[in-house]
Amino acid sequence: MNKILLAFFLCITICLPVFGQAEAVEAHTVVILENKLQAVFGGVESGKFVNANIAVKSLPGLKTFTPYGSDGLSGARFEVGSGERPSIPCEEFYQYASNDNPKNGVSFSSNVPWDPSPRQVTKLKTNSKIYRSIVRKFLKKQGLRNPVVNITALFKVDLEGDGVDEVVILGERYVRFGPGTQKGDYSFLLVRKVINGKVKEILATGEFYKQAVRFGAPNRLEISSIVDLDGDGTLEIVIYGAYYEGVWAEAYKIKGGTSSKVLTTGCGV
């Protein structure tokens, strides 16, 4: 009996610090950067997303990052400095210094334990007659009677890892980009997904102008990257956006038949 008690107390004194260390390592933040913004996008702690204001605290100890572009392929590693807020007051927006910063995509800190790009992302031709017809019908559903179809990005990728590809469509049409909009202007991110044998269109984000608006502050969109941001096996779609007095980035997770925004950062007036 005494030997059992002795073993128990030894475990209390020896094992608990080890368990504590394991938890500390597990909770260590994986920092994610948005390269075009040259800013901290956010991070992941114990499989959960955290905002940039939390992730930036780990940046001084994580100097080396690996970039991933819109095609999911990684590039050459680069180093960054600490994150700082710009002179314009913007909440949760922290830019970093780097001489080798990639021009687009997102980057992960060197402590990322998962593969951010586990499946192939295939770029499709944006002048496809099939998808131009699909987009025309979609725009009419949004209330645009005679839409001018303009697909700016088109990708095929298995987002959820279930063996079935989704199609990611980015579309945009602005007669004159600025604070106002013209009738028929639009921008959107659309995912076409097969659910129970039927194709469902999932609108992640978008704006559609049935009439001209003098001050609409429209957004231009680009696909920054399609990668697994949090290590759950599902690829998120990261978009870079800009309007006439600001820039931003957002990440969307497609699960089942719904879309949810999981990360966002930006700065503007």
Rank of each mutant, 00 (worst) to 15 (best):
A76K: 03
E207T: 00
A97Q: 03
K210N: 15
Y186I: 08
G206K: 06
G216W: 10
R145P: 04
K63R: 14
L170Y: 05
D100V: 00
G231H: 13
G163R: 04
G246W: 06
Q182C: 13
G256R: 12
L263G: 04
P89T: 00
F138V: 14
N35T: 00
G75P: 12
S107Q: 09
T265G: 06
V112N: 12
G69I: 06
V80L: 15
C90G: 08
K123S: 09
V121G: 05
A22W: 08
N196F: 14
G206V: 01
H28T: 15
L59Y: 07
N127Q: 13
P118V: 00
C267K: 02
S187C: 14
G233H: 04
C11K: 11
I226W: 10
K57R: 13
L16T: 10
V213M: 15
K3F: 10
G206S: 07
D185A: 11
Y68T: 14
L62R: 02
G42P: 04
N2W: 05
D165V: 14
T264Y: 03
I88C: 08
L33G: 01
G72C: 12
T258R: 13
V80T: 15
V30T: 15
F19W: 07
V191Q: 04
V164R: 06
S187K: 09
A97W: 02
G47N: 06
S133C: 02
K193R: 13
P89R: 02
N150W: 05
I237D: 11
V194M: 15
V30L: 03
R136W: 11
L235K: 15
R192P: 04
V56D: 08
L144W: 07
R176M: 08
S225R: 07
F108C: 05
G178Q: 10
Y96C: 03
I195G: 01
W248G: 00
G171A: 13
N127C: 14
F138S: 10
L189A: 11
P86N: 12
E172M: 11
D100K: 06
N150Q: 13
L6N: 09
S98G: 01
F93M: 09
L62S: 02
E23V: 08
N104L: 03
F138L: 13
V31R: 02
V238L: 10
G83K: 01
K57Q: 13
E236F: 07
T66P: 09
V191F: 05
G42R: 02
V44L: 03
E160Y: 09
K125S: 14
I130G: 04
I169D: 00
N111S: 08
G81T: 05
G246S: 11
G143F: 11
D165E: 14
L235D: 12
A249L: 01
R192F: 05
S117T: 07
V149N: 03
P179G: 07
G256T: 15
N196A: 15
G47Y: 05
F188H: 07
L159C: 04
I239P: 04
G233S: 02
K210E: 14
C15T: 13
G83W: 00
T152E: 12
T29D: 04
G184Y: 01
R192W: 11
P67N: 11
G83A: 10
S133H: 11
N219A: 10
I239K: 03
M1G: 04
I88Y: 14
R145S: 13
P102F: 05
K3E: 11
G72E: 09
A76R: 00
V194E: 15
A76P: 01
Y96L: 10
L73P: 02
R176Q: 07
W248S: 02
V157H: 14
G266Y: 03
P118R: 04
A249K: 00
G241N: 09
